[in-house]
Amino acid sequence: MTDIKLVAADGPARVTFEPGGTAFALDAEESVTLRLDPALAPAVEINMWSNGISVWLPYPGDGEAVCTVLDSDGQELARLW
């Protein structure tokens, strides 16, 4: 599995996973980790701005979970797809 860490480095931020719209509010310096199959990593698009991060994921192909979102302690927050 591949992990991509997303951090609210400059202050509070909202991390949104698209196309489903699952979102998490992070305080300054908080993070979430996107865990996914390495073959899917090249298809992930990450856009950042001053108070948010948008993560565009590949559309699911077979209905199974494409990725998992973990909190900073490694606990599962959401399973996407």
Rank of each mutant, 00 (worst) to 15 (best):
A39I: 05
D10P: 00
M48Q: 13
F24M: 04
I4D: 06
I53L: 05
I4Q: 09
T2K: 11
D3W: 08
S72G: 03
N47K: 14
D62F: 07
G20S: 13
V66P: 00
A43Q: 10
P60I: 09
A78N: 03
E76C: 02
S31Y: 10
S50W: 15
E18Y: 09
S50Y: 15
N47G: 08
D62T: 01
D73A: 14
L80C: 04
E29G: 00
D10E: 14
Q75S: 05
V55G: 02
P60A: 14
L70S: 03
I4W: 07
V7S: 04
I46D: 05
V32F: 01
S50G: 08
W56F: 14
T68E: 14
P42S: 09
S54W: 09
E45G: 00
V32R: 01
D27N: 13
S31L: 12
L40T: 00
A23K: 05
M48A: 11
S72N: 06
W56P: 00
T33E: 06
M48R: 10
G11R: 11
G20R: 11
C67E: 05
M1K: 03
P42E: 13
E45L: 11
S50T: 13
F24E: 03
F17G: 00
L34A: 03
E64I: 07
V44N: 08
G52E: 13
R14Q: 13
P58K: 08
F24P: 01
E76A: 07
F17I: 04
G61W: 12
W81C: 02
W49S: 14
A39D: 06
E45C: 01
P60T: 15
G11S: 10
V66F: 08
N51S: 15
I4F: 07
M48Y: 10
G52Q: 14
D27L: 12
S72Y: 04
Q75P: 00
E45D: 10
V69N: 01
L34C: 04
R35H: 05
A78V: 03
Y59C: 02
V32W: 02
A43S: 08
A8W: 06
L6W: 04
M48P: 00
D3E: 14
G61Y: 06
V44S: 05
V44I: 09
D27W: 05
L6N: 03
D3Y: 10
A39F: 09
A8I: 06
N51Q: 15
A9T: 08
S54L: 13
D71M: 09
G74A: 04
D62E: 10
D3N: 13
P60D: 15
C67M: 06
K5V: 15
